[in-house]
């Protein structure tokens, strides 16, 4: 009996195991302060989107919590603004980007992790060189290229420059290098050809890095603003961020609750993705950092 109690105590740490009480209180106070500062504005946005039309969103009389919570604003935003179209367009760009990045960064990263073929170093140099130029300093020329391809005001034009990123190739290469060679040797003895080794040995081993590539691509494509702003023109082709920013600049005609609702809608997919994957994500981020 006493043994069991002892054991449970050791398994379940008590508060005093975490440090002196005063230090703990200060730590938690700071944690909650930063919590308020970081998610406060976003939370406020969420609360404001739930307010009914009779309530002030801001001004002296506005309360923090909605008095009569309602989802009406979410219905209005779909009624008055082509949000569904925006979302569809964003999803198209995201799907294209994630697919192409995933397929081509793994294949290229795999080959670059393999010794013994001519021109490997040259490929490496080209990839590194392409990372040297900040997007903003080449966007004029990029736009002219997209124009010459006839892709202005076309979702493909938004997607194409982010077709496959050198940084993701380097990340995948690092992950593949970490796979012990002995495993590959034994797979070869079992008669696995190159495709089989890539597909059944290397891809599953690089799971963490693949996830990082997927999430980073998803977030950057979903949140991107400047490039869609340059390429897209007509309302029916706009992505969600672009549509939202237009709500703001013409906001006088719009209900603020509705714009808040639109913002919340745009955060949800990324948030869901993050919550599902965060356990692997942190691990992937750190492993990628070490390999790079």
């Amino acid at each position: 009996m006493t043994m069991a109690v002892e054991k449970r105590r050791r398994l379940m740490p008590r508060w005093r195991d975490y440090g002196r009480p005063r230090e703990l209180v200060v730590r938690y106070l700071l944690l909650f302060l930063v919590l308020g500062l970081t998610i406060g504005p976003l939370l406020w946005q969420l609360l404001a989107s739930l307010k009914s039309t009779g309530e002030d969103v801001f001004g002296a009389n506005a309360s923090l919590l909605p008095q009569h919570p309602t989802l009406r604003a979410y219905r209005t935003v779909f009624d008055q603004v082509p949000v569904a179209t925006y979302i569809r367009n964003s999803l198209i760009v995201v799907t294209l980007s994630v697919t192409s990045q995933l397929v081509f960064s793994t294949t290229a990263g795999y080959m670059l992790s393999k010794p013994g073929w001519k021109g490997r170093r040259a490929v490496w140099v080209v990839l590194i060189a392409s990372m040297m130029f900040p997007f903003e300093s080449i966007m004029v020329s990029l736009f002219l290229s997209i124009r010459d391809l006839g892709l202005v005001d076309n979702l493909a034009g938004v997607w194409l420059p982010g077709f496959v990123g050198a940084i993701n190739v380097l990340l995948m290469r690092g992950a593949f290098l970490a796979v012990p060679r002995e495993i590959e040797d034994s797979a070869m003895l079992d008669g696995a050809n190159e495709w089989q080794r890539f597909r059944y040995l290397y891809l599953p081993s690089a799971w963490g890095a693949i996830l990082v590539v997927v999430i980073n691509t998803f977030i950057s494509a979903w949140d991107d603003f400047l490039w869609p702003l340059i390429v897209l023109r007509s309302e029916s082709n706009m992505t969600l961020t672009l549509g939202l920013s237009r709500l703001q600049s013409s906001s006088f005609g719009y209900d603020q609750r509705m714009v808040m609702a639109g913002s919340v809608i745009s955060v949800i997919p990324v948030l869901v993705l993050f919550v599902i994957t965060q356990r692997w994500f942190y691990r992937g981020v750190s492993s990628g950092a070490v390999k790079l």
């Binding site: 504005p41 939202l244 955060v267």
Partner: peptide, 11 residues
């Protein structure tokens, strides 16, 4: 995770 546009709107 939030896009700069959303964060900008909130600010």
């Amino acid at each position: 995770l939030a896009s700069s546009v959303v964060v900008g709107l909130s600010w």
